[in-house]
Structure formats: structure tokens, C-alpha cells
């Protein structure tokens, strides 16, 4: 039982959900609940009204858009994202990040949108979305707009808005995700995602850093050296300021910087092999 005062509604559509969100103090979107319910029970979150969007048709499903992007509805379960043939073929870093999440039961309920927005702990999907050059679609009181996955990771969703979809460039197989999971919680100690594009490589890291970040300086060093060997990648990470890496329980900044480099090197090798 969640012991704080709480109400629950299941809106019929997105517009009703937005109106409820705008009109109620302490209202929170509920998707799979795999982060929000534990947070409500521990007191980390104190929502008064839960607006359940898990079944909204507008927020579900994976489709190909006219511009060659994959549109992943925010309420699509992580299990579906991990197993979708189009995502596996065209955005493999995203499928792998979804698959790396917790366990099968968490993936059955946990959603793409919830994983991009869950607060408090680093999650797996944001790095993959950043490396993929993905955008998100947000619906809010002022209408609809898009933001980059990088902007979302930095600022979160604006108050009163609902994330409706993730838009991923479906460029092909030259991308990969690597993770070292905490043995007990399965959350990432560090996760890295890369995508090789015509303009070079994109590298994103989470867990080791304060939040999911694209590492442009690492990308530049790799482009300048033209060398993606493990040694070259580790050197590119050693050149980052130590303060970029934030020590956690049982980890030092030095260890995390090294781990981020190792995972990035592995991801680059796998991405290159599948290109």
C-alpha cells in the first residue's frame, strides 16, 4: 500500500491527460510504474494524483515515418523495443539498451518514455538515444514540440508536459551499447553507446558521469587520430578532466573514466564489425 494520500485516473486520451496534468497540484504521469511506484513507497516522490498513460493508443507502438525515422511511442514497453526487428536492424544500440534493463518483468511494464525520464538513478535508454541522435516529441499546454535526446537528458521534460514519442534516425546497424551493471540493482555503474555515421562517431556515456552525456571532445580526439583501437579510445578518455567522472559507492573517478573508455572501445569495435 502506498501510504500517502493518492488518487488515480485513467484518461481516455492525450488531451484529457494534459488537462488533468495542468489542472492538478502534485499530478504525475504514471506509465509502467517501475520507477515511480518504488519512489512513492520510499517517499522519494510525493505525487497526489497519478495519471495513467500506459494504455493510451497515441503513446504506443513502433512505426516508420516518412522521413526514415523510427517513431517509438513513449508508452511502448521496453520488452517490445528490445525485440522489434526494425529497431534491432536500424537502431541496435537502442534495442540493446532496452534489453539491458533490469529483468524481463521490469521490461514488460517499464516503458521507453519512463526510462528516459526516470529520476534519481542513471538509466540505460538515454545514452543510446543520445548516441543515435534521437529526438523526443513533447505535448504540453503550449502545444507540441520536439527536443533532442541530449536536451531532454540535461533538462528533463518541462512541467505539465507528456513525452509522446522517441524519434530515432534509422540509419542502420553501425551502432552498439555496452554496460557494466551493478550486481544487485542491475542499474548501470557505467553504460556507453556509440553510433558511426557519415560525419564520424557519436559517443555517449552514463553512470560514470553526473548524467547521460555526449562526449564531443572524445569524439574529436578519435576523429583527429583516425584510430579506434582500445589504446586510442582509452587515451581519448584519459584526456578528459577527472571531474567529469563522479565517484559512486565503491568507485573512484579514475576507475570510472577507465571503465567508460573500455566500454566505449568495445562498443566501437562491435559497431564497426556490424557496419
Amino acid at each position: 500500500m502506498i501510504l500517502t494520500e493518492l488518487d488515480y485516473v485513467r484518461p481516455a486520451g492525450l488531451d484529457e491527460a494534459l488537462a488533468l496534468l495542468a489542472g492538478t497540484r502534485g499530478a504525475r504521469v504514471l506509465a509502467g510504474g517501475q520507477s515511480l511506484l518504488p519512489d512513492l513507497r520510499s517517499g522519494a516522490d510525493t505525487a497526489r494524483l497519478l495519471i495513467d498513460v500506459r494504455r493510451l493508443a497515441e503513446l504506443r507502438g513502433i512505426t516508420r515515418t516518412g522521413t526514415g525515422e523510427l517513431r517509438i511511442g513513449a508508452a511502448t514497453p521496453l520488452a517490445d523495443l528490445a525485440a522489434d526487428p526494425e529497431v534491432l536492424a536500424r537502431a541496435p544500440e537502442l534495442a540493446a539498451a532496452a534489453r539491458a534493463n533490469g529483468d524481463p518483468q521490469v521490461r514488460n511494464l517499464g516503458t521507453a518514455g519512463g526510462n528516459l525520464l526516470a529520476a534519481g538513478r542513471p538509466t540505460d535508454l538515454p545514452v543510446a538515444a543520445i548516441a543515435a541522435g534521437a529526438r523526443v516529441e513533447l505535448a504540453g499546454p503550449g502545444g507540441r514540440r520536439t527536443a533532442t535526446a541530449e536536451e531532454l537528458a540535461a533538462a528533463g521534460a518541462p512541467p505539465g508536459s507528456i513525452l509522446t514519442a522517441l524519434l530515432v534516425p534509422a540509419t542502420g546497424p553501425a551502432a552498439a551499447f555496452e554496460k557494466t551493471a551493478d550486481r544487485a540493482t542491475r542499474y548501470p555503474v557505467c553504460a556507453a553507446a556509440v553510433r558511426i555515421t557519415a560525419d564520424g562517431v557519436r559517443v555517449a556515456v552514463t553512470g560514470a558521469t553526473a548524467r547521460a552525456l555526449r562526449l564531443r571532445d572524445v569524439e574529436r580526439r578519435l576523429a583527429a587520430g583516425g584510430d579506434h583501437s582500445t589504446e586510442a579510445v582509452l587515451a581519448a578518455f584519459r584526456a578528459e578532466p577527472r571531474s567529469l567522472f563522479v565517484p559512486g559507492p565503491g568507485t573512484s573517478a579514475e576507475y570510472l573514466g577507465h571503465l567508460a573508455g573500455v566500454l566505449t572501445a568495445r562498443a566501437l569495435a562491435r559497431a564497426a564489425a556490424s557496419a
Partner: peptide, 11 residues
């Protein structure tokens, strides 16, 4: 399969 301690009866 889901964990029933992480599902609201209402949902």
C-alpha cells in the same frame, strides 16, 4: 510476467 508488488490494483 510482471512483479505484482510493482503494479497498482487500479492500473
Amino acid at each position: 510476467s510482471v512483479k505484482s508488488c510493482l503494479v497498482l490494483t487500479a492500473s
